[in-house]
Every structure is written in structure tokens, then in C-alpha cells.
Design a protein around this nucleic acid. Structure first.
Length: 633
DNA sequence: GTAGGGTTAG
């Protein structure tokens, strides 16, 4: 309406119009949609300027309150500060809304500084001030000493009876991992408590890894809501027991608790971690059954879950069907394609992402570099590594170096990789040296491998993987005495060899196998099946390669040790119980050994069955005698 | 006009 009127006015007429011709500012705000974009807020601001209201307390505070609701990525903290700075005598409302903007913005510490300035300028505070301020102090990384000072103000200014303030205090202490203080605030006033108080404490314990305490709180809660359930689930997932989180999700659904986005995302993340597609499908189906509308968060978690459960095509479809995509969604898809060895597709996706005008993050480059590595695109990888720093100002982190070392190592450029490591600005971690050591083993560089292996053992003497890799390098060079020496060293030092296991899902049940396992109730049939598979493979000309069996034992025993690797048991079981035409999906914790890799390729050919293995770091799609990793992993 | 939960990588 305002604009239409203006169209008919000449410039001179416009000048002659009183600035307040649209007498109220309510029009400016009532024309805004429920969730305005930054651009629409700027337009509202422009209207206030035209109306001559840009220094008036109430409309500016109103505008700030709308800014504070923007998603954090769009929150213009500097702009909010400039809006606020136009005010002569800011109200508590205006100041609170500035605090709210700053607390949600990229630099929450600014909220503390702004509060200090407001106190000095005599701006009044009220009970709304402290929740915003304490939330700023509890953001990552937390500001413990600032928050404690705020707590002192709360007490001094007599706001400590306020439920919202108390809850914000509990959350703040929980974020600082100071559960003692969180508990004190919680216990101090049992009459000023609600479900949020309980949840805040619960989250604190869950994040601190004190899952038993969290469970106990959960059981004692007088009222539980969806946040209570999802917070407990997060605790399990963070504690490394995603299966318990999934169990809670099922329980939550069975009890008819209204499922929320966080519960869905956490349950999907748990399924993704476990690689259990049937669990993931259950969560997806539950979501659809309940008519939960697709959100960015759930969409991203679905893309990630399907990718991590080996269903990269479904993952792609979910991604393409998303109504909106943010950088998290793109990153999930990109990284998914890369771990599946679809390097070319990942790079095409990255192109689309950049052409769409989005800004990559450091995780985006982990995906891109990984993709280059998997596709063997050395020059392209080097180019993106440079572009990351030069075009986007992202400093390489350990993971980026990891991808590049992997890329160079795979291409046999081990000395270039070594040079890169030596020139790093951050101290290379053992994982990085381990990546290089892996490259030495693959390319048979015994001397360099020996140096790095010894160095690694020195760095992490309790880590069995280093001894295993080094003895593998010796074994490949047929230096048997050294193999024995390293193995003895390993035993003497009492390192615990991480036992290898493989999981396979069949008809709603999860079956777990460890090497040489005879626990499974169908063990006799499984071993019989392995024998049968082997004779079929032998007819097809397959010879076991025992060079990677890192035992100082005789050849015959070596063959036996390889034969009983956990994924073989899982594959044999899979061939027994998974219907024909369906792929056999296996999840294992360690990397696949060379012989099992060869074995899987042959099985996929001879038995015309697709086998999808998720190992410790990537996927192997075995089909018609080939593997998607192109035999480098 | 307030406080509590989740997603990408390794």
C-alpha cells in the first residue's frame, strides 16, 4: 500500500511529503512475513529510516527482536549492533534483543561486552536479560568466568527467583561441564523447577558421558517431554552405545511420545553409525507414518544414514528431493559419494554447489579431497587443496592433510607426501603418520616404512595397529626375523589387539561375528558353507594370499587364520540367509585384508552376488569380480 | 519478548 501510493508521487512531491505520512510503524512490521529474510528486514529498516523512526526505541527494538529470530547463519550481528547504536537511551527490551542477537551470532562473547557497556551506560536490565546473556556464556567454547560473574549479578539484583533465569544458569553450568554447580542451582530451589530444569541437568550429564546419572535423572523426572527422551538418546550415542539410543527411540515411539526432530536426527545418526540399514529404514518409516514433515535437519540425517548404510542411490534420491539444501546437506552428500568411491560424481556435485553460490566449509573440502583421492585425481586434489586456502581462506586441518597424504600415497608419491607432512604448520598426529605408513606398505617401501613405523610405535606404544602395520611391511619384504621381533615387542608391551568383528543384518536381527567365531548357533553350517565357497572359488582359480597374515606361523595355519576372518563368516552367512538378488551388506570395524578383499571379489563373480562392505574408513562394492575401491584402500 | 535437544568429517 505504502509503495503503491509512492509510485504516483513525483520527486518534488515526495520531498514535500511529511516523513511520517504513514503515521504508524505498525504498518512496517505488519507487512513482514512470519519469518522474514535479512533482505526483508533491511527493507523494514529502510522504511523506518524514511519515516524518521530509525532512532526511536520501540520500533528499533522491535526490528532487533525480528533479527534475533533469524537462523544463526543469516544473523547479521554487526548490523544489529549498528541498529542499536542509534538509540540514545536504550530500553531493557532493546538491549535484551541485542543480547539475544549477539548470543546466537558467531561471536557470543560480544553479548558479554555489550552487557558490560549497557550496565555502565545505566541501561536497565530485567529478568529477560539473563537467559540471553547466560546462553551466550554457555555457547561453544563456554565462557565460565564471565558466566559466574553474571550469576553474581543475578543474585545481587534479585533475579534468582525467576524460573527462566534459574534454568539458564543450570544450562550454563552444564555447558561448562561444571555439574556440581549445575546441581547446586537445581537443588537450591526445588519449588522453582520445571521440565526444562530437569532436561538441562540431564543434558549436562549426558554430554559429560555420565550416562548412568542421566538415566537415573530420567527415571526420577516427574514429567518427561520429547526433549528429555532425545537428550537421553544423545547421551547414549555420544557414549558410543548407539544401539541403546535406538532402543530408547523405539520405546519413545511405542509409548506415543510426540517424536521431535532431534529424536529423529539422533536415531538416524545412531543407525548411520552402526551401519544398520534396517534400523535406519525403521526410523524413516516411522517418520513417514507419523506424517512428520521433511526438514533440513532430518533430510541431512537421512542422506547421511543411507550413505553410511551402503545405499548411496537412495541417499542421492533423498538429497535431490530435498526442498531446500544448506551446506550441511551438501556436505553430507559430498562425503557420502566420496566414501563410496564415487569421486567423479562427488566432484560434479561440488561444481553444482559452487555454481549455486554457496560457500564451502572445511568439511566440504574433506569431501572434495577425499573424492580426489578415491578417484586418483592427483592434480585436481592439489588444486582444490590450494583453492581451499587461497580462495576460501580455510586453513587446512589434520583431516585435510590426511586426505592429501592419502591422495599422494595412493598415487605412489610418498616422498611428496612426506615433504608435505614435514612442512606442516600444525604438529602431525599419529593418524597422519599411519596414513603414510599404509602407503609405504602398499608400495613396498620397506625402508621408509620401517622409519615411520618405529617412530609411530615410539609415539603410541600402546596402539597395536602400528605394530601390525610394521610387521606387515616386514612380512611383505619377507624379513621374517623382524616380523617376529615386532610381534614379540607387541606381546611384551601388552598392547591389546582390537578384535575384528563384522555385522550383518538379516530379517530384523543383527548377527555379529569375530574371527574364528564358533558362537553363532548356525556355526557348523557357516563353516561348511565356507568350505563349499572355497572349493567353488578354487575351481575358478582363486589362490589365497597369506602375505598379509601377520602371524609368525606356518603357511597352513596362515591360510586357516585368513579363512576365519570375521567378514568371511559374515559373507558365508549372508549367502545362506539373504534372498537371491539382494546384496549382502556387511559392516566391519577394521580394514579389509588383501586376501579377504580378493575373496569377496571372487565371491561376487562366482556366486553372482553383490557384496557391500563398510570397513573402518570406506565402502567396498564388490560386483562381478571387481571392487569400487579399484583395489586401493 | 525468555530457558533445554539434533545433522556434515575422523
Amino acid at each position: 500500500m505504502y509503495c503503491r501510493e509512492e509510485k504516483f508521487l513525483s520527486i518534488s512531491e515526495r520531498r514535500s511529503q511529511p516523513l511520517f505520512f504513514s503515521s504508524s510503524t505498525t504498518d512496517v512490521f505488519s507487512s513482514l512475513p512470519p519469518s522474514p529474510s535479512p533482505r526483508q528486514l533491511h527493507q523494514a529498516h529502510a522504511k523506518l529510516v524514511v519515516l524518521g523512526h530509525s532512532s526511536r526505541r520501540s520500533p528499533v527494538a522491535h526490528l532487533l527482536s525480528r533479527c534475533a529470530l533469524l537462523p544463526p547463519s543469516l544473523l547479521p550481528a554487526a548490523y544489529c549492533l549498528s541498529l542499536y547504536s542509534r538509540l540514545d537511551r536504550p530500553s531493557a527490551f532493546a538491549s535484551n534483543n541485542l543480547l539475544r542477537c549477539l548470543a546466537r551470532g558467531p561471536a557470543p562473547r560480544a553479548a558479554v561486552l555489550s552487557y558490560r557497556a549497557a550496565r555502565l551506560a545505566g541501561v536497565p536490565t530485567n529478568n529477560y536479560t539473563y537467559p540471553f546473556l547466560l546462553s551466550a556464556c554457555g555457547k561453544h567454547p563456554p565462557l565460565p568466568s564471565e558466566g559466574r560473574q553474571v550469576h553474581a549479578h543475578v543474585v545481587k539484583l534479585a533475579f534468582s527467583r525467576d524460573l527462566f533465569v534459574r534454568n539458564a544458569l543450570i544450562s550454563f553450568y552444564a555447558a561448562c561441564r561444571d555439574m556440581g554447580s549445575a546441581e547446586t542451582v537445581f537443588e537450591e530451589r526445588p519449588d522453582v523447577r520445571d521440565v526444562v530444569s530437569w532436561n538441562s541437568l540431564l543434558v549436562g550429564y549426558a554430554r559429560a558421558g555420565e550416562i548412568r546419572v542421566a538415566e537415573d535423572l530420567f527415571d526420577r523426572m516427574p514429567v518427561r517431554d520429547a526433549v528429555s527422551w532425545s537428550s537421553l538418546m544423545v547421551g547414549y550415542v555420544e557414549k558410543g552405545v548407539p544401539e541403546k539410543g535406538l532402543r530408547r527411540f523405539r520405546e519413545m515411539v511405542e509409548r506415543g511420545v510426540a517424536v521431535n526432530e532431534a529424536a529423529l536426527v539422533t536415531a538416524l545418526s545412531a543407525s548411520a553409525q552402526l551401519g544398520l540399514i534396517e534400523c535406519g529404514r525403521f526410523v524413516h518409516a516411522t517418520m513417514e507414518r507419523l506424517g512428520f514433515r521433511m526438514t533440513l535437519g532430518v533430510g541431512t540425517a537421512l542422506v547421511d544414514m543411507y550413505a553410511k548404510c551402503g545405499c548411496i542411490e537412495i541417499s542421492r534420491r533423498v538429497f535431490e528431493d530435498l526442498p531446500r539444501r544448506d551446506v550441511f546437506a551438501w556436505n553430507a552428500m559430498l562425503c557420502g559419494l566420496a566414501t563410496h568411491g564415487l569421486g567423479k560424481d562427488a566432484l560434479d556435485l561440488y561444481r553444482r554447489f559452487i555454481d549455486g553460490g554457496l560457500r564451502p566449509t572445511s568439511v566440504t573440502f574433506i569431501g572434495v579431497l577425499n573424492a580426489c583421492s578415491r578417484a586418483g585425481l592427483v592434480d585436481e586434489g592439489r588444486m582444490h587443496f590450494r583453492s581451499m586456502v587461497q580462495d576460501y581462506g580455510i586453513q587446512p586441518e589434520m583431516e585435510h592433510y590426511g586426505c592429501i597424504v592419502d591422495l599422494l600415497g595412493r598415487a605412489g608419491l610418498v616422498s611428496e607426501a612426506l615433504e608435505l607432512i614435514e612442512g606442516m604448520t600444525i604438529v602431525p598426529d599419529p593418524v597422519l603418520w599411519g596414513t603414510l605408513l599404509g602407503a609405504c606398505k602398499i608400495h613396498g617401501l620397506a625402508e621408509l616404512g620401517e622409519t615411520i613405523g618405529k617412530k609411530l610405535i615410539e609415539l603410541e606404544p600402546a596402539h597395536d595397529g602400528h605394530y601390525v602395520l610394521l610387521s606387515g611391511i616386514y612380512a611383505k619384504a619377507r624379513k621374517w626375523e623382524d616380523v617376529v621381533k615386532v610381534r614379540k615387542l607387541m606381546t611384551n608391551r601388552g598392547t591389546n589387539k582390537v578384535p575384528g568383528w563384522s555385522l550383518i543384518e538379516a530379517h530384523g536381527e543383527v548377527h555379529k561375528f569375530v574371527a574364528g567365531d564358533r558362537e553363532h548357533e548356525q556355526s557348523p553350517e557357516i563353516y561348511e558353507r565356507i568350505g563349499m565357497i572355497e572349493s567353488r572359488l578354487a575351481e575358478a582359480g582363486y589362490l589365497p594370499d597369506t602375505s598379509q597374515v601377520l602371524h609368525d606361523i606356518g603357511d597352513e595355519e596362515k591360510v586357516l587364520a585368513v579363512k576365519q576372518h570375521s567378514e568371511r563368516l559374515a559373507i558365508a552367512f549372508g549367502l545362506m540367509v539373504i534372498e537371491e538378488g539382494h546384496p549382502v551388506r556387511i559392516v566391519k570395524n577394521l580394514r579389509v585384508c588383501g586376501d579377504c578383499h580378493e575373496f569377496s571379489k571372487m565371491v561376487s563373480k562366482v556366486f553372482e552376488r553383490e557384496i557391500i562392505v563398510r570397513d573402518g574408513s570406506r565402502f567396498h562394492h564388490f560386483k562381478e569380480g571387481n571392487c569400487s575401491c579399484l583395489d586401493y584402500w
